[in-house]
Nucleic acid binder design. Sequence first.
RNA 1: UCCGGUAUAGCUCAGUUGGUCAGAGCAGUGGACUGUUAAUCCACGUGUCCGUGGUUCGAGUCCACGUACCGGAGCCA
Length: 435
Amino acid sequence: MVKGIMNKILIKRANEHQDKTVLLNGWVYNSRRSGKIGFLMLRDGTGIIQCIVVKNDVGEEKFEQFKRLTQETSISVSGKIVKNDRAPGGFEIQTSDFTIHQISVDYPITPKEHGTEFLMSNRHLWLRSKRQNAIIKIRHQIIKATRDFFDSHDFTLVDTPLLTPNVCEGTTTLFETDYYGEKVFLAQSGQLYGEANAFAMGRQYNFGPTFRAEKSKTRRHLLEFWMVEPEITYCDLNENMEWAENMLAYIVAQVLEHKSEELAILERDISVLEKITAPFPRVSYTDCVEILKKGGFDFEWGGDFGSPEESYISQQFDKPVIIHRYPAEIKAFYMKRDSENEDLVLGMDILAPEGYGEIIGGSEREADYDTLLKRLKEDDLPVEEFQWYLDLRRYGSVPHAGFGMGIERTVSWICKLPHVRETIPFPRMHGRLRP
RNA sequence: UCCGGUAUAGCUCAGUUGGUCAGAGCAGUGGACUGUUAAUCCACGUGUCCGUGGUUCGAGUCCACGUACCGGAGCCA
């Protein structure tokens, strides 16, 4: 057995070690046998490589051990990395020796098809599959690209609290918990704190988990999901839309550049993603209503778009579409009104193409103290809980704007998945808490 | 919470008008094979037909209720 960390390599780097003798640590993905030659597919999380086990090379006893290898048995293999076009990936290991760490017995997920209920119950094991591995890597790339984008534009990452005494928007149902006898809630957004952070840092983004206790059972909803929320001072609605579209275009470009193999595993149509370049089409809410009416929808100005409406609108474009200036009635208290029409707010949503719906929601914020106070009262929100938020309008208020992007919905769209539950390792959904 | 659907072997499913209907493929085990790609070939096993009640001479099949799951609506990222 080859020892030492210099010889211990990851499968993704196998091609850098051609004709070298190395040590690979991993798990059995699959194994086949054809008489005195065996094919062991070894996975280590970074990739899968074929290991050739020849009876005459490893000896009778080792070959008998090889025959007993089961799916997901943990194993270390040493051998020479050689180029071979017959091997998936172009390289394979000429096995000289291997060590079995633990034989896996009756691994439940076989290389055949399974239903989602079964797979979700075995989510802790399902993550080892090629497809889930690819999704996790793309999720990582999306998060990395998001952070790189903001970091390279002089934003500071600032964390916001998860335990909050007040409701942010007052619309959705929140998870309740106990703070030494006081009722507190799990954050549904970090935005209000993000605004305070932005006034301190100029440009900030917060990135963390958020919670919504809605009993939603759709392909777009999770109870616990991750959100990136940039907040930018001296920024209006138009600039806000520019930030959002540039960020999304960058994220898609980075995924295309660094995760083409993973996209191929998911059989994602790359040409659709290649079209995602800034600028994105911008349509006002009022124009959307016209689009819907022309499309045969029975839709009155003033209502919120449901899933069918969102799908229809996004299908009119092959890029994400930015919808702006919604009726104030259906949006949150902190959004600034349009000075040209007080019935509208300077808010915007971005709908992903291919029917994926809303992935970004944002707005220019109300910056005037008196107006904001009026809005809080209109919405019957507890003004005393918002004193610190009002302070931002009392001590050097400035125009500012920001948005929130749902990570899982973005991953779902970029990977073209049928359901957001596959975008996060352990999804929390209505009716599914375990594993 | 509301609407629609599904529930049969470890997994994916078939099962006709209610009458040898307890089935297939895969996985697993044993064997053959020195280039396999979800290998192939031969042999071997498996059941609370989701639960409870009902109709019937007879229910996996029909009915009612319940449970679990799936999809959708509302809410939103």
